[in-house]
Amino acid sequence: MISHISKQKMLYLMLLPGVIYLIIFSYAPMYGIVLAFKDFSIIKGIMNSPWVGMKHFEKLFADSYFQTVTWNTLKISLLRLLFGFPVPIILALMLNEVRKTAFKRTIQTVIYLPHFISWVIIAGILKVFLTTESGIVNQVIQLFGFEPIPFLTSNTYFVPMLIVSDILKEAGWGTIIYLAALAGVDPEQYEAAMIDGANRWKRLIYITLPGISVAISIMLILSLSGILNAGFDQIFNLYSPLVYESADIIDTYVFRIGLLSGKYSLATALGLFKSLIALILILITNKIAKALGGSGIW
């Protein structure tokens, strides 16, 4: 072993930068989790702050606002799944039926683009477009004789607005994985089905959907593992205290109590609660994805 190490000294040296990086930027913050079990004070530092056991967790679970943000997180994630998950599949199926290559390419180019534009920019555009006084969307709504809709400030409309804008930004990009799966469906099956007189609908039900069902189930399972990520980037750039009631999620709440109110220990406890559940979800869903015949994440 020692001779192996000395012989391969250079290779081990090359691992060093990565190891140092991980120790400083990944493992050191993991040590910081002890904050969740201490009463942190900046002056005493992490080491010398007193241990308080589960105090912060008890405080958290007793707080009704914790239930609000957890419920909001789950609600928004599930709504995204319900309305957002089928859209890329449908778009991919539709694109797959297009025979004119130029048309198909153009649509693909256009619908992939918003994925690469940050939520700050999209939120900026949404704010300009959706304001009740002068936003172009509300001008159109008024043109048809309706009352302007306060998309950004009403608890009724804010969450639907989140879901629709997320679909417009990400659904196109989401088609890539299904288009790849569709390209893998054996064309001979279609030819045989056509000889047997199967119409377009029957071909969809009996050939296309079974052909991409593995891809669909893996994507579904992977999105379930992210159920606690309700879209921090999007919500943080669009929300305001007016819509906290319907759209304040765990991530935005951690940000506010931790970095704005300075309750480091409480925020760490909430963050830890979330990371632990996320870890369990990832481990379970990855197992299921592998069992379904996918490669899983690793």
């Binding site: 991980l22 400083i24 930027f25 990944s26 493992y27 050191a28 913050p29 993991m30 040590y31 910081g32 989790i33 904050l35 992490i46 951690v254 940000f255 931790g258 970095l259 480091y264 925020a267 760490t268 963050g271 830890l272 979330k274 990371s275 870890l279 990832i282 481990l283 690793w298």
Partner: peptide, 15 residues
């Protein structure tokens, strides 16, 4: 391990 679990926002901030 670092891909599956992280210390979270506050420990990262303090670091």
């Amino acid at each position: 391990i670092t891909m599956l679990f992280s210390g979270g926002l506050i420990p990262h901030y303090l670091l």
